[in-house]
Design a protein around this nucleic acid. Sequence first.
DNA 1: TTGAAAGCGGTACCAC
DNA 2: GTGGTACCGCTTTCAA
Lengths: 347, 347
Amino acid sequence: MVTMSDVAKAAGVSRATASYALRGDPRIVPQTAAKVREAARALHYTANLSARSLRSGRNGVIGLAIFELDRAYPSEMGAAISREANRHGLQTIVQETSNSKEGEIAILQKVTSQLCDGMIFSPGNVNDEELRQLSGGKPMVLLDDISPDPVFDTVNTPCEAGSQAAIDHLIEIGCKNILAVGAHYESLTEDLQSTSVSARRLYGCLKSFDEHDIEVEPENFLHVLWNPEEARDLAHRVAKSGRRYDGVFCMTDTIAMGFIRGLADCGISVPKDMAVVGFDGINETEYFIPSITTVSTDLSDLASKAVNLLLRRIEEDGEISEPQRLTADFKLVKRSSTERSDLRITL
Amino acid sequence: MVTMSDVAKAAGVSRATASYALRGDPRIVPQTAAKVREAARALHYTANLSARSLRSGRNGVIGLAIFELDRAYPSEMGAAISREANRHGLQTIVQETSNSKEGEIAILQKVTSQLCDGMIFSPGNVNDEELRQLSGGKPMVLLDDISPDPVFDTVNTPCEAGSQAAIDHLIEIGCKNILAVGAHYESLTEDLQSTSVSARRLYGCLKSFDEHDIEVEPENFLHVLWNPEEARDLAHRVAKSGRRYDGVFCMTDTIAMGFIRGLADCGISVPKDMAVVGFDGINETEYFIPSITTVSTDLSDLASKAVNLLLRRIEEDGEISEPQRLTADFKLVKRSSTERSDLRITL
DNA sequence: TTGAAAGCGGTACCAC
DNA sequence: GTGGTACCGCTTTCAA
């Protein structure tokens, strides 16, 4: 392994000078700097990040912790963040928490807070106070944090506005009896700011119903775990229940896909018999049959907001500003799953 | 930040003793060890990985580099490896190479080889010689490496046997005119061991045709980039070509999904008009409509083989054994996309 | 403008 | 069995 001493020796300067030169410190005269750079290149020198990190606390790497690597939304988000960080000259390391408290603690405490300049984190099972401890003082940006009293910068997904747009769309295309899948009607009791993602999406639904003067009952909302298996089962139960819905808003695309699959199992066709809207905008929605109308979270925007917040914290020296809370953009992408043939005929 | 000196002081021992005690060195007497552990717990001490790594070259973290985070197969593989590593008490950090040479170099040179005890890597644009340089001497296991003369341990996906099983299945259900999508017929000229994944999958197809005494022509094979967009376009062209296939083997599930989508665009129904088999076994194949028959690579097996090979290298001291080449298990998962109604009637 | 040297937080050798 | 201490590779004061 070639070290900076090797480079310094080859260039005929001291280690200190080599260090300054390689990092472009203006104190070093151009000739010396060029000599050092040349030596580094010739020797294929690469700085040792552990050493740099140990000494200066910085190494140009940021950490991202997501629930699960193998689910579409978090992994697409990870890709977006990774690419955005690259644009700023940073490397991103991704880890999965497996949505368990031990996982989150292990990652933050053992890895991310030690090996990275800062981290972006989807908290699931640790609260802000624990996070503060686990962060080891390193900058952190949270994704969809639900603390009433935020300690860290946060970027939220556009839950309220997005869900509202979804229901608006179903109403627009003529749906008269809409079902929202993903949250209990009862979950909406708490303070909205500090509440869960599902409750915030539910809130958006209610807002839309309200603005359209549509009365809803608890039966218009069904809770389900956010995975396709459960959604599929739920669709079976809905199909057998006899209750007739003509439009469904699923709080995630994965739910939507499972739900549509479940409807298909029971001979109910989307969009002919029922229109379906998803949320997230994962790539698969375009290739699913039918392609799925979805509230597409703008992941580039989310990534850019998160990385910029993090960089601000990493670069700020001492003076700590108020934690910020931003929301990512979205757009409603209309596809087959809400194309109503009856509507098309009237056009 | 609480350091080992703090722990040592609190426990009334030296730093050296504290270090030994915390790592369970048998030389330390149980009482002393307990004292140290208690102090560490009370102070919420966590070892600094950069420091440990700098000194000992080990920190319990392995690196995984995959092409793209936001594609199903690599991310499911990443999840499997991450979980397998956890089982061995290791943390995994995942990075995406974006399938570019610069990406691969940056990751290996700047991050993985420095911050990790070893790495698992899908090479795409760097050859073995470059890899050896970039690895910095750290242990590395490759995934689907195609070097004629392997330098590193490798775990391959079951290309030949899997593709053969796929074609076998299509033949079994009565397909008479089969199309394989994903590789040129011409790509099969080179030495099989050192050839690309697509060529190896192609070879499996040919083996099956051969064993069933089925004559094939170049028209039975169509090349396409391995993404759903291209596959969808290709399906459009196939549909319009007039050539009648009754069974299609797509070399990845993503191709299969895009292809089925494209067929649907043209009014061709799967499996009624055409049976389709995919490869990889990604989760979505189960929820796609129709659900997709696929050659499912056993990712737990792949992960276990890769992690075990890596651990062996990390733990081996000096004595270097021959590079090993293993192949992951698979199973053919039969689903709707190859359910032939005509066959079902005759049963 | 450059160099000497201290030190980041651990590990591991060697002496006691 | 435990402690002193050199050292991993780099950054960063401080002096020259």
